[in-house]
Design a protein around this nucleic acid. Structure first.
Length: 919
DNA sequence: GAGTTTGAAACT
DNA sequence: CAGTTTCAAACTC
């Protein structure tokens, strides 16, 4: 935490994680105290390091996986759901899921871990493998219940376990490194994790055994995972360790992983996790393992789900509580949700949720979107609502993303997209909370459905999480069946989706539940439903058939991109969020003008893209036309708008920006859920108040007034959004400035919220809130920063600077303590942010201009890449390169540089620019 | 609540 | 790959 560098170094050595684990296992207490100390001092930096390492590797490796991620995500989601739809994926996933469920059973700790672990989605895999191997089981954990451990647990468990499984040596090395670098929080975390894992081993082992025992299939899958892990080698593991900080992005391998990482990064950074650990204590550690694993699984998908985070069982709750005071509301919600849901089922979700919470730290919100990303529409939907703000429904469950699938951000969205999830977090407290709760419920339900036995408190909750996780909490809200429909179907509430299928037996993609990889819930009004746990075989078979026809049929449809702008957008958007997101296949609207939910893009709160074949697109989230528009155009428009002050134009601008970002992100393959948006939204208000006055106060306000009308004109449905939009537009114009302002605001907020927030705040400026958002933000921010940098300074290594900024941000956030951050945030955090902001502000125009070129390139590649590439880690990379080929070179370079740079960059350092920008 | 509209999914 | 049909959600009344 303290020093990114150390973390980096550690990360490099991360491999030693095993060693750390060993040491931990050996003398957990000792380490703990040091860890705790370190932790207190430390910051996420380590994660960064790990991430660092991981990035390179993971990022590289992961991308492809990422693509798969949809599947994976879906798989994971599925697993979560318990549906092991796909034997293939499902196998591994299922194993994970099982593990997760078991772990979930184990306890909230897992949740905590998961949150922590989230950082290392890889870890998850490792964990899963571990579960299989269960070398981890051994770990006795001593666990200190210290936060460190807690944090570490997730990581450790994952990493350590995985490492152990894979390479004991590696662990040793890691340990050595850690010992040497014990200071590094990351290592510590890892170690702690290990310890926890070990400590929990007993528990874990139990849980695992269950898992193992549960599904033979799982074992194989787990083995597969193990193999993968092995292949990836210590690196991945290390990354996992690293991930937390930084790595989240790098780790991307799988969207889920990425998500995890990102979240983990957030988590790791923030002290919150630590706190959680401390709170949870050994128990947490025990549970954590399971949690972490589950989380891992889920997390991937879940980024979004994590957002929800509501699942976490009581323990989870504890974690939450400990985690983010700021998010207390969320926590509370979660708690309630958790209570309702059975612990077991929830565990995973909770894990995610916790993560999200933790991550968001402050903001529960974070989660949401996640949802959305990469999710099926369902997931998306979930996210959307979130975006809408409080619309909670979507968010609520979702998000964040998510069956899982991302996002992000979301969060656990019902159907998380892959990564589901996309993930995204977004959170604003209110939104987040509501959304989260809903999500959590959904998750719970899905869980229950998935896991019949243990936890299913409810008979069937079918709900699924969609891969994305977004979790919809259909069940959650289960109001009347009919309501289900509306709400369920879309976003309503919660995201839980409910279907009303009559002829398809819920075995076709017509069924939202099925499409989301979720079992139908009691809430569903479907007739002759076969999408139930009891028909698992049928479901799986059907799924396979569908997949055979279209491998991506269950992949998240929406790829979220957390864009830098998102932060900005967030403000304006209010929650729409997902600007950055894009629909993979695009819509084909002819009469709805993409302003109604008939439009999948609109429904997902994402703008139309080139992939769309819509006619007369009026998508408020971004028109197809705009999508194609280059930054220059956007900038021009912005200028015009500023001159004209036309709300519509502003909207367009925003959309353009979003699109641009989206493109960039897409390229990056970031699918981070937009959950964070919500988070932003919260801040946004504040920001708005501030911002508006500043630049566009009048204009903005006028815009607001205009917006509604505009929105109406455009589309009635999104009026609220439209309102938000207006502000956004104004903000967008001012984005740079906003960024500054935001920073301030954020800083404040972050200070209030939590350390984690700091990071987010730094990035997002405003995102202080939610971790998930932070994650998202981070990814987005980083991406944005990079993008901007790239755009603005294509030549420069802006990458380094950018990266540094991004890294710094993260670093700052993680390393920096909240309070410090507050002060620093302005200074340091801003630094990082500043970097970004500076870039943005200074560059904004330039960026737009510059970006235009890159963007175009990006556009070309983006869609696919989005999917393919892993989430966050890639995101950054991509971000840097986001635009595409152009950037790709840079991007990679950046990435590489970024990795190294991060450590050096340390958060504060970058601030210099920030100061300038701000002032 | 019933009926219509819509666009994706499924089918040919 | 294009066109048509089927389907369930979204929407309207």
């Amino acid at each position: 935490m303290d020093s990114p560098k150390t973390t980096t170094t550690t990360t490099t050595t991360t491999i030693p994680a095993t060693a750390t684990t060993v040491s931990l296992s050996d003398s957990p207490p000792v380490q703990e105290s040091p860890f705790s100390n370190y932790i207190s001092n430390l910051s996420p930096i380590k994660p960064v390091n790990t991430a660092h390492v991981a990035h390179g590797l993971l990022g590289i490796n992961s991308p492809p996986l990422v693509f798969k991620s949809p599947h994976t995500a879906s798989d994971r989601q599925i697993n979560l759901l318990r549906r092991f739809q796909y034997p293939q994926i499902s196998g591994a996933e299922t194993s994970k899921i099982n593990d997760g469920s078991k772990k979930s059973v184990d306890g909230p700790e897992d949740m905590g871990r998961s949150s922590i672990c989230l950082t290392s989605s890889l870890i998850v895999d490792a964990q899963t493998s571990d579960n299989v191997n269960n070398s981890e089981q051994d770990q006795p954990g001593s666990s200190s219940g210290c936060v460190d451990e807690y944090l570490s647990d997730p990581v450790d468990a994952d990493c350590a376990d995985s490492v152990n499984l894979v390479n004991p040596n590696v662990k040793k090395s890691d340990d050595a490194l850690q010992s040497s670098e014990s200071n590094l929080t990351n290592y510590k975390i890892v170690e702690s994790d290990d310890i926890n894992d070990k400590g929990t081993k007993g528990e874990v082992s139990q849980a695992r055994p269950e898992q193992d025992g549960d599904d033979p299939k799982e074992q194989p899958t787990s083995e597969n995972k193990m193999e993968k892990i092995k292949e990836e080698g210590s690196l991945t593991k290390q990354p996992s360790h690293v991930c937390p900080n930084f790595g989240s992005d790098l780790l991307v391998d799988h969207a889920s992983r990425q998500q995890c990482y990102t979240s983990g990064a957030q988590v790791a950074h923030p002290h919150e996790p630590i706190q959680l650990v401390t709170y949870n204590g050994s128990e947490a550690s025990q549970l954590q393992r399971g949690m972490s694993r589950r989380c891992l699984q889920f997390e991937q998908a879940q980024q979004e789900t994590t957002k929800d985070g509501t699942y976490s069982p009581n323990p989870a709750i504890n974690l939450f509580g400990s985690i983010s005071p700021a998010s207390s509301t969320e926590l509370e919600i979660l708690d309630s949700s958790q209570v309702e849901l059975t612990i077991s089922s929830l565990k995973e979700q909770t894990m995610t949720a916790m993560f999200s919470a933790n991550i968001s730290g402050k903001s529960p919100v974070a989660v949401s979107k996640p949802s959305g990303i990469g999710l099926h529409l369902n997931s998306i939907v979930n996210t959307l609502p979130m975006g809408s703000g409080a619309s909670g429904p979507i968010m609520s469950h979702h998000l964040v993303e998510n069956k899982i699938s991302c996002s992000k951000l979301s969060n656990l969205v019902e159907r998380v997209s892959l990564t589901a999830g996309d993930r995204v977090l977004q959170t604003k407290a209110s939104l987040a909370t509501s959304s989260t709760t809903s999500e959590s419920f959904h998750n719970m339900e899905s869980f229950n459905n998935l896991q019949p036995p243990e936890h299913q408190v409810t008979p069937h909750n079918k709900r699924r999480f969609s891969s994305e996780h977004a979790g919809n909490f259909e069940e959650f809200s289960p109001s009347s069946p009919k309501k289900k429909r509306k709400k369920a179907s879309s976003t309503d509430g919660d995201g839980c989706k409910r279907c009303n299928c009559r002829k398809t037996k819920c075995l076709k993609l017509y069924c939202d539940c099925f499409a989301a990889g979720i079992y139908c819930a009691a809430i569903c009004a479907c007739q002759g439903c076969f999408n139930r746990p009891e028909y698992e075989d049928t479901v799986l078979e059907t799924r396979q058939q569908i997949e055979s026809r279209n491998p991506l049929a269950f992949a998240p449809r929406i790829v979220q991109h957390v864009t830098e702008f998102q932060a900005i957008d967030v403000e304006d958007v209010d929650l729409f969020t997902p600007y950055s997101g894009r629909h993979k296949t695009g819509c084909n609207c002819k009469r709805s003008m993409c302003v109604k939910k008939y439009c999948e893009c609109y429904q997902a709160n994402v703008g139309c893209s080139n992939a769309c074949r819509c006619e007369g697109c009026r998508n408020i989230h971004g028109r197809k036309e705009e999508y194609a528009m280059t930054p220059e155009i956007v900038s021009n428009r912005a200028n015009e708008e500023s001159l004209e002050g036309m709300a519509d134009e502003k909207l367009e601008m925003v959309a353009n920006n979003k699109f641009l970002h989206a493109e960039l992100y897409d390229l990056r393959s970031l699918t981070p859920p937009t959950p964070s948006f919500e988070y932003f939204s919260h801040e946004r208000d504040a920001l708005k108040s501030q911002l508006l006055p500043g630049r566009y106060v009048l204009s903005s306000e006028s815009d607001f007034s205009m917006l509604p009308s505009y929105a109406k004109s455009v589309s009635s449905p999104s009026n609220s959004h439209g309102n938000d939009m207006l502000p956004k537009t104004s903000k967008t114009l001012d984005i740079v400035s906003h960024g500054q302002e935001l920073d301030y605001n954020i800083t404040e907020i972050t200070g209030q919220f939590s350390p984690q927030c700091d990071e987010l705040a730094d990035f997002s400026d405003h995102t202080p809130l939610p971790n998930p958002s932070s994650i998202m933000m981070a990814s987005s921010a980083s991406s944005k920063t990079q993008d901007k940098a790239n755009v603005s300074q294509p030549q420069v290594y802006p990458g380094s600077a950018r990266l540094s900024s991004g890294s710094s941000l993260r670093w700052h956030s993680s390393p920096i303590t909240p309070m410090t951050r507050l002060g620093e945030t302005k200074n340091q955090s801003q630094d990082s942010d500043c970097g970004l902001y500076d870039i943005l502000e200074d560059d904004t125009p330039e960026m737009l201009k510059d970006s235009s070129a890159p963007i175009t390139s990006v556009k070309t590649s983006s869609p696919n890449k989005k999917r393919v590439s892993p989430p966050h880690s890639h995101i950054r990379e991509f971000q840097s390169s986001s635009s595409a080929g152009l950037k790709s070179g840079r991007g990679r370079k950046f990435i590489l540089k970024s990795v190294p740079s991060f450590p050096p960059l340390t958060p504060c350092r970058d601030s210099k620019d920030c100061t300038q920008q701000k002032y």
